[in-house]
């Protein structure tokens, strides 16, 4: 083995060891690396109790309601399996829409209501002009009426 082959073997071996170490560390910290919990995870008790955490999911269609005090907004976050009702008094971001992704930070109260201190909109990876969006919406509506 020439010295340079030895050096390359050392570099390759080092990188492999480093990669495995990184994979193990990331695997161990798995639960700390998630930005939010889904309603299903919250229901199964994976989310921290009595502490603030973030939940993420879709805003359920037709669930957004303004409370009588005029400031608090209430909406349901769903991952299509489980749901959590969220109350938030503050300004919602521009991209906040029913049927779109959302991430809320806050605590679950005794009554099961999630009181948020911050609400962020989660954008999806789809970029399309309004006409295309319109066509997609129409197709969704058509699919729904067929089901009914």
């Amino acid at each position: 083995m020439k010295p340079r082959h030895k050096r390359f073997a050392l570099i390759g071996g080092g990188l492999a060891v480093l990669g495995i170490a990184a994979a193990l560390v990331l695997n161990a910290f798995q639960s700390n690396l998630v930005f939010f919990f889904t309603p299903t995870q919250v229901a199964s008790g994976e989310a921290p109790k009595g502490k603030a955490f973030r939940i993420g999911g879709l805003v359920k269609e037709g669930s957004l309601k303004r409370q009588p005090d005029g400031l608090t907004m209430q909406f349901v976050v769903t991952d299509t399996a489980k749901e959590i009702t969220v109350a938030y008094s503050g300004i919602l971001p521009d991209l906040f829409r029913e049927g779109k992704g959302v991430v809320a930070q806050g605590k679950v109260g005794d009554n099961g209501l999630f009181t948020a201190t911050e609400v962020l909109a989660k954008h999806d990876e789809n970029y399309m002009p309004p006409e295309a969006q319109h066509a997609v919406d129409e197709a969704h509506k058509a699919a729904k009426t067929v089901k009914q």
Partner: peptide, 28 residues
């Protein structure tokens, strides 16, 4: 690879890839 796959491996606020080698791009 952690940067690239972070949006796949974990829940993130950042959206997933719109353009990748394995699927058709999800943009106009």
């Amino acid at each position: 690879p952690i940067i690239y796959f972070s949006v796949k491996w974990w829940n993130t606020l950042h959206q997933g890839a719109s353009v990748s080698l394995t699927k058709s791009p999800s943009m106009a």
